[in-house]
Design a protein around this nucleic acid. Structure first.
Length: 210
DNA sequence: ATACAGATCGGT
DNA sequence: CCGATCTGTATA
């Protein structure tokens, strides 16, 4: 398995969001090496997307990374207590990003359990195990990702990067609207969320009945 | 200087 | 459904 290079990230956030499904996110920390498979993403399409932090070319200290080159991490604090991790897409001055919404734990689950619940994995209920990383705030807590990693270059960093893997079966990928963007008017309805349907680690699944 | 809302989560 | 909790951002 190999690390994607810079050109891999130089695509629209919509394309990148689909392309990284099934890839691995690796973070090497003092707690050990932790790896999760990316099973859910959302695209934030930049200056015309009312759900995006960079909507209307909103360039501030917080959103600055998105205006830079692709392949860097955009990490912000939400609701005063959780972090969300994004990967910057597209080219410089095109502020698009992909939010990582859920991971399937692959390696370092013992450390993840400690960071999430302050207890060891074998004392976790089944629900707690799937709850390790099935949401954007949860996965940052489990993988020890915070604003100290903001701006980090996933192409060159030895500590945090992606590893590419075979794409999932196309039939297994569901497209839906994004979560918790009720303020975004028409953008509420944009089909910018993607997930691997067979994964039990997806945060919210679409109601397929009815 | 102040006000206010938020790309979430966990418990009722 | 509701509250936690605090920063980033806008407004004045």
């Amino acid at each position: 398995m190999s690390k994607p290079d810079r050109t891999f990230y130089k695509k629209t956030s919509l394309e990148l969001a689909k392309a990284i499904l099934g890839f691995y996110l690796v973070h090497i920390t003092p707690h050990g090496r932790m790896v999760g498979k990316i099973v859910e993403t959302e695209a934030y399409m930049g200056i015309h997307d009312k759900a995006a932090h960079s909507y209307n070319n909103n360039r501030t200290k917080r959103t600055e990374v998105m205006f830079g080159p692709p392949g860097h991490a955009y990490i912000y604090l939400i609701y005063g207590m959780y972090h969300c991790m994004n990967i910057v897409a597209a080219e410089t001055d095109t502020p698009q990003a992909v939010l990582i919404r859920a991971l399937e734990p692959v390696e370092g689950m013992e450390s993840m359990a400690q960071l999430r619940y302050k207890k060891s994995l074998h004392q976790c209920s089944k629900k707690e195990k799937t709850g390790l990383s099935n949401g954007p705030g949860k996965l940052c807590q489990a993988m020890d990702i915070s604003r100290s990693e903001n701006g980090l270059d996933l192409v060159n960093s030895k500590h945090m990067f992606l590893l590419e893997d075979d794409p999932p079966d196309k039939k297994d990928i569901i497209t839906s609207t994004r979560i918790n963007i009720g303020y975004a008017e028409e953008a509420i309805h944009f089909p910018y969320r993607f997930y691997i349907n067979s994964s039990p680690y997806v945060s919210v699944k679409v109601n397929t009945s009815k």
